[in-house]
């Protein structure tokens, strides 16, 4: 059996053109590029919030259409750019996914809170009372509560200050090691990509312009467009 969690061949969807890529088990893939290059759309395809207009996506060696959709979305968890919390308490948000699958495990809460650095006292807090950084942590914890195998992150730190960015990155690194998670993350922050990723994909106008190992890809770009992009950071 192949080591590929995801395989995309000749995928087209809106701005995305002829995307071919593979994501390895346990890989930490960083997707970056200018805005409007199709980064979020790419993440939506992995979670099936959207389907390609043409081309094929395989998940663990099988066509993605073969999987039960809610189950796939649970396994391939997505953290959206905005936290979009449900307007109740923190614990209600954490329970949302697992309750749908009758898999809510009260004992797991402590571990979950630990991973995202939130005190237990926060559980009964209404989400409206949280700061931006805290909301993003709850959003991350809400996705993790489903115990995903793959974690998709859409610029989860874009609205945060340096201190919060650093601490969420630490949480993620801790998680990736402990859970052997495969991560696909969209970021506009190249330093972050180098800190967290093992593989980089540079997207521009819907096309993969350059891809390779990190940090090498960013430190030694081959194409003019990636050279320009890194120079402007």
């Amino acid at each position: 059996m192949s080591n590929h969690v995801f395989e995309l061949s000749e995928v087209n969807k809106r701005v995305l053109q002829n995307i071919n890529l593979t994501v390895n088990q346990g890989g930490r893939v960083m997707v970056f590029g200018p805005s409007g290059s199709g980064k979020s759309t790419l993440l939506h395809l992995f979670n099936r919030l959207e389907d390609p207009d043409s081309g094929e996506i395989k998940y663990q060696g099988q066509p993605i259409e073969d999987y039960n959709i809610p189950k796939l979305r649970k396994d391939v968890g997505l953290v959206l750019q905005q936290p979009y919390l449900f307007s109740e308490t923190v614990i209600d948000n954490l329970k949302y996914g697992p309750k749908m699958f009758n898999e809510w495990d009260e004992a797991f809460v402590d571990e979950l809170l630990d991973y995202v650095n939130l005190p237990k006292a926060y559980l009964d807090k209404p989400v409206e009372d949280l700061s931006g950084g805290e909301k993003q942590r709850v959003s991350l914890a809400r996705t993790l509560a489903n115990k995903p195998k793959v974690l998709l992150l859409d610029e989860p730190t874009s609205a945060l200050d340096d201190q919060n960015i650093e601490s969420i990155e630490e949480d993620l690194l801790k998680l990736m090691d402990a859970w052997q998670l495969t991560i696909i993350m969209v970021t506009h922050n190249l330093k972050q990509a180098m800190r967290l990723g093992t593989k980089g994909i540079y997207l521009e106008s819907g096309k993969i312009v350059e891809t390779g190992k990190l940090p090498n890809l960013i430190e030694h770009p081959q194409t003019d467009s990636l050279k320009n992009f890194t120079a402007n950071q």
Partner: peptide, 11 residues
């Protein structure tokens, strides 16, 4: 946004 979040969690 919230609906997308719910769907993405398997709703």
């Amino acid at each position: 946004g919230k609906i997308l979040a719910a769907l993405s969690l398997g709703a």
